[in-house]
Design a protein around this nucleic acid. Structure first.
Length: 736
DNA sequence: GGTTTGAAACTTTTT
DNA sequence: GTTTCAAACC
């Protein structure tokens, strides 16, 4: 088949312009993956380029997998030799081969956010920094940003001169980095930065890759950071055939160091660049597209473009406003159920998108109640569960005994009678003698003052040594089985007998399944390879085509996906846009881009919802309708509770005005729902100064009663539970 | 050395 | 409302 079949003229230009730097500005749903895959096929089939010389970098494994599959279907043979990988796994691949050239062992560990925090805690302790005052996270974030900008510890310290706080961070950075080095470990940011360091330092390695990668393509270019840009620049500067694809309107990872100027200034970096704009949208209906355009038009800092579609307007966007987040979730669940029953949409057509992971809980509850299958992506990562991290720590210990963090995590899991005191002694011994923690453990009996515990240390090190021998010839699943059985880890959980313990056993089984899959699917299975795979997968990578469930995820995770029927929930100022970004224009624009991403995920139908009251961290919040909803042209919106002029109920309450008299939405009776959260104002049988009883907090004295219009807000000074503010209808206080 | 309990912090987004 | 962490107790 011809590679230009079914492509529009601009797409064809993107496919055919193979030489030199190319910037493809691809609006949402404009077929950028199509262009990229056809481009690869064109290079191989029509131009005779060897697949070995082609590189395509993506952000997620899912995107990489899709591209590989589609290329596979288009070219006759050799597609598997194309280097299609994420930024991080590309770097791991390079480092696994050449890390020894920058002073690391190629059996390195990869540290995730939890590991970083543990390590940082130890660093702060050593430097006598009180983590109550200076949070580990603050240091980690500062170091991460520095690494995104390719600034090492010495550079950071040099730039910090005179600034006391920055100097402290610089010292923390230096020590943190020394520890990573000692543990033979990289954190996520290191993977990129150290690869750049390797390529800059070692001309041989650099020219090896420059000669290899004759054609380099980068997807989601708007989300690259400075380090990633430099990596791409280095790798592609052999033949200088670099093609980047992105959409500045979908840049949503500034907080992670993404540098939007990489795309905005691409033509400055590469003055001879060909710029191609893909503006025809093939995904969404006219209404959805107009809504997205209406919102994004409010951003000032963007490249002008006009996304258009040949599709009809289709259905209007539905907006519904509820009294509480419960009612909101209930509406979404019953709506999904109804559409399924009417055969309008399958479950797999539906996605519920939210700003924060915490919002998933309520949705989950209502979906369970409605008996609707669903799957939550993101949130608590499978690989960050305790039992999984424990098993992985064993594997990391076997793979890289210099990884003190992993050794210390499992040396007393399950309990072996090796406590903190012993660990401190061993650490001290290791430090004095310049050994790794594990080496010190092996010499446990030599450590002064160790006594009987020395035997326990010895037994542990022999166990690990045996595993290490075993790992030489056995498979990863065998190794995991050996660990969980011979340590008594599973037995301990079984003995516990709680539901939670059962869940943990199931999770370990799941890990075992993944190991089996890895062992059979991978060309050259190895322990390092398995550990690498589990470190670098994102939850979203597991969303497949054949599923039969509703997908729940954050707006961030949804980038790059599409669904026929999308619900954007929690459309409230303070939640989305987040209160964190409300008085910063740049951050507000990023939130707006996030909204744009959300809207453009929808193909046929889009519903937005908001709640007047919502519990956040145990406190009730009052939020106004998101400004983004109001930025959508009014004629595109329908919905029984839509009122663009509705005001924040909290503002009204403060001035003692009745909410009812001001906001027309409140006058419309909402359909009565048959669950117990409906707010109903009833006369109270107690007043200020009375003694009352609460189910949970016990007895107390009423100090204040506020008329909030719809409900009374009662402040009670409890005898033992302190002062609490609550709504009368929820609190069900009893006069005593 | 291990377990229990209560306070305190946390939530914006993640490869 | 949940999770994490330290102190106090066993």
């Amino acid at each position: 088949m011809s590679v230009t079949e079914n492509l529009n003229p601009e797409q064809i230009k993107g496919v055919m312009t193979t030489e030199g730097p190319v910037l493809i500005l691809a609006g949402a749903g404009s077929g950028k993956t199509r262009v990229l895959t056809h481009r690869v096929a064109h290079l191989i089939e029509d131009m005779g380029v060897s697949p070995y010389h082609i590189m395509a970098i993506t952000f997620t494994n899912k995107a990489a997998g899709e591209m590989r599959e589609r290329v596979n279907n288009m070219v006759s043979y050799g597609a598997e030799s194309v280097w299609v990988a994420t930024f991080h796994s590309s770097c791991v691949r390079i480092l696994r081969r050449f890390a020894d050239r920058i002073g690391y062992d190629t059996h390195f560990s990869i540290y995730d956010a939890d590991d970083q925090k543990t390590l940082m805690k130890a660093v702060c302790k050593d430097l006598n920094i009180d983590t109550k005052i200076h949070k580990e996270r603050t240091f980690i974030n500062a170091i991460s940003s520095a690494k995104d900008e390719l600034l090492d510890a010495e550079g950071y310290l040099a730039a910090a001169a005179g600034d006391f706080n920055k100097e402290r961070t610089g010292q923390v950075y230096r020590e943190y980095q020394a520890r990573l080095r000692k543990n033979n470990a990289f954190d996520f940011d290191d993977l990129i930065m150290k690869t750049v360091e390797l390529l800059r330092q070692d001309k041989e390695v650099l020219s090896y890759y420059q000669e290899k990668f004759e054609y380099v393509m980068v997807d989601e270019y708007q989300d690259t950071n400075t380090a990633q840009f430099e990596l791409v620049r280095l790798l592609s500067s052999g033949k200088n055939n670099l093609c980047v694809v992105g959409d500045d309107d979908q840049s949503i990872y500034k907080f992670r160091g993404a540098n939007i100027y990489n795309i905005l200034n691409f033509e400055k970096h590469y003055p001879d660049a060909t710029v191609i704009k893909l503006e025809q949208n093939y995904r969404s209906t006219g209404s959805i597209l107009d809504a997205a355009n209406g919102v994004i038009a409010n951003n000032r800092n963007r490249k002008e473009k006009a996304l258009w579609t040949e599709q009809e307007a289709g259905e209007k966007i539905v907006f519904e406003h509820f009294d509480s987040a419960y009612e909101e979730a209930d509406y979404v669940a019953s709506n999904i159920g109804r559409l399924k029953k009417q055969s309008v949409f399958e479950y797999k057509d539906d996605a519920i998108l939210y700003r924060t992971n915490a919002q998933s809980r309520l949705m989950e509850e209502k979906l369970i109640a409605a008996n609707i299958p669903y799957k939550i992506f993101g949130g608590v990562n499978f690989y960050s569960r305790r039992e999984i991290k424990d098993v992985l720590a064993y594997l990391k210990t076997v793979d890289n005994s210099a990884d003190d963090l992993s050794v210390q995590r499992i040396i007393n899991v399950p309990k072996r009678g090796i406590g903190q005191t012993t660990i401190n002694k061993v650490s001290e011994y290791a430090r004095i003698n310049g050994l790794s923690f594990f080496e010190a453990v092996s010499r446990g009996k030599e450590i002064p003052g160790m006594g009987k515990t020395g035997e326990k240390l010895n037994a542990f090190s022999l166990f690990i040594d045996r595993l290490r021998v075993l790992s030489e010839e056995s498979t990863v699943p065998e190794l995991i089985r050996d660990i969980t059985e011979n340590t008594g880890y599973i037995a301990e959980l079984e003995a516990e007998g709680t539901d939670e313990a059962e869940d943990r056993i199931m999770n370990i089984d799941e890990l075992l399944n993944k190991a089996v899959t890895y062992q059979t699917d991978s060309e050259e299975p190895s322990l390092s390879g398995f550990l690498e795979e589990v470190s670098l997968v994102a939850d979203i990578d597991n969303l497949d085509e054949t599923h039969d469930y509703v997908a729940l995820m954050t707006l961030h995770s949804a980038k790059g996906l599409e669904f026929p029927n999308v619900y954007m929930v929690g459309m409230e100022d303070g939640l989305f846009p987040s209160y964190m970004s409300i008085d910063d224009e740049a951050e507000m624009e990023e939130e707006r881009r996030l909204c744009y991403v959300g809207i453009t995920r929808a193909k046929a139908h889009l519903t937005m919802t908001a709640a007047r009251t919502r519990m956040i961290r145990g406190e009730t919040q009052y939020n106004a309708i998101s400004r983004f909803v109001k930025e959508i042209p009014e004629n595109l919106i329908s919905g029984s509770t839509y009122d663009p002029n509705s005001r924040n109920p909290a503002d009204l309450k403060g001035r003692g005005e009745s909410v009812k008299s001001l906001s027309p939405v409140f006058r419309k009776p909402l359909p009565v729902k048959n669950f117990g959260t409906k707010i109903e104002k009833k006369a109270l049988d107690y007043s200020e100064g009375d003694r009352v009883r609460h189910q949970k907090f016990g007895t107390g004295t009423v100090t204040l009663i506020n008329d909030g219009g719809k409900d009374y807000e009662v402040t009670v000074d409890f005898d033992s539970a302190g002062t609490k503010k609550m709504f009368a209808s929820f609190a069900r206080l009893e006069k005593v």
